[in-house]
Computed example of a mutant assay.
Amino acid sequence: MKTEIISRVRIKPSSPTPPHLRRYKLSLLDQLAPPFYIPIVLFYTAKSDHQHHRSGSSSTDHKSQRLQSSLSKTLTRFYPLAGRIKDHLVDCNDEGIDYSEACASIHLSDFLLLPKLELILNQFLPLDAYNTMSSEQVPLAAVQVSYFKCGGMAIGVCVAHKIADGSTVAMFLNSWAAAFHNKSGSGDEEEAIIVPWLSSASVFPPKDLPVISLSGLTMNQKVVTRRFLFDAPKIAALRTQLIVKNGRTDNHPTRVEAVTALIWKYAKNIKRVKSRSKGVSLATHVVNLRKRMTPTAKIPENSFGNLWCSVAAEATTDESEEAELNSLASQ
């Protein structure tokens, strides 16, 4: 499978950013975020099996115009994405984000039968998401829309981690989707489209920190991405099997806890066999702070920026085969 780029444009906000909003402060957590992009690829099937994509067809042109127009409107609300980072702030100069369109050589259904992560990362994203941002002049976001032969499409989005986390990217995509589906331009549009809260620096003020390059830590190592599939009945059975002891009551773990415990257990076993030693084992998750702040009113659900922390659970003892999963799920 190959994708061929058919167009490249720069999308700018539909309305200019007011002068008093031109300087967007990065928060302390933004400063500490890695200089990579957050990559997301969304796949959409065609409404009908008879919709075949032809480059330049009227239906594709109409969809392309709506995607670009709604994206431009969304950038007026998420205006830091259209700016450029300078020192510890974003110059919201409305330079815009990169937007490209491509044609894929196969049907979406054929690709989804056995999706290859290498193809997703290399052909459906607008840029190399895991290469460090080496210049202050690079766009803070980029989009690639790829059309399949059947009429389906993939939308690949990369947003700079320096100004956004996963929740921010999801909020941006939901707002763009709402703008795309609103055709009437009525007052209801304002109710459906998310307006971000752009004041996270007031909660986590920035500090005068040196800029640390992570390129030497990542580019010299071989990084492998793998995909694991767990179907719903198997996860439900695993949850039923496990009991989490939280000090007050015994209950079943969440799906994330159950699957994490399972992967953690076998990772521990592999390490033990390879190193022939027990040692300390950690499982790490990234946690969204928006619902965990005290008081919670300080951080609204629609907060823009990096509002997360890394939390580790530690397992220092080896237990019986039967008790190990329960213990890891509890941790």
Rank of each mutant, 00 (worst) to 15 (best):
K86M: 06
V223P: 10
L125K: 03
W308P: 08
V224E: 09
I6E: 07
I40A: 09
H20D: 12
H285E: 14
A104Q: 03
I235N: 00
M293Y: 10
S199H: 02
C103V: 14
M153T: 15
P205W: 01
H52R: 12
W264R: 12
L42K: 13
K25D: 07
Y44T: 10
G187F: 00
K245G: 11
L21T: 03
I194C: 04
L29K: 00
V90R: 00
S59N: 13
Y99P: 11
A177E: 13
I263T: 11
L32H: 08
K12V: 03
D231A: 11
A283V: 12
R226T: 13
N182F: 06
I243S: 08
T260G: 12
A323T: 13
A258G: 06
A160W: 03
T254K: 00
Y44F: 14
D94T: 02
N306F: 05
N122E: 11
F124R: 00
T249L: 11
V203Q: 00
S184V: 00
Q137Y: 02
P16Y: 04
E136F: 00
K25C: 02
Q65I: 13
K2E: 07
S135F: 01
A192T: 04
N302Y: 06
G187E: 06
I40C: 09
L26P: 01
Y99R: 07
S199Y: 00
Y147P: 10
Y44R: 12
S303H: 03
R22L: 06
L119F: 06
H107L: 14
V244N: 04
P19E: 07
P233Y: 10
S109W: 09
P210E: 08
R276Q: 07
D318Q: 12
V41F: 09
L42H: 13
R290K: 13
P34D: 01
E301M: 06
E101G: 09
T317Q: 15
P196V: 05
S48A: 07
A154M: 08
C103G: 05
I235V: 15
A178C: 10
D128S: 03
T132N: 00
G305N: 00
S134D: 02
W264C: 10
N93M: 04
T76R: 02
Y44M: 13
F172I: 05
L114I: 12
I5L: 02
D94L: 01
H88S: 09
P16N: 00
I106F: 12
E321P: 09
E301Q: 15
S303M: 06
L42T: 15
D165G: 05
A315T: 15
S14L: 04
T254M: 04
L262N: 05
K162R: 02
G187A: 01
G151I: 15
K149Q: 15
I193G: 00
P295Y: 04
A232P: 13
L71E: 06
Y266T: 15
Y79R: 04
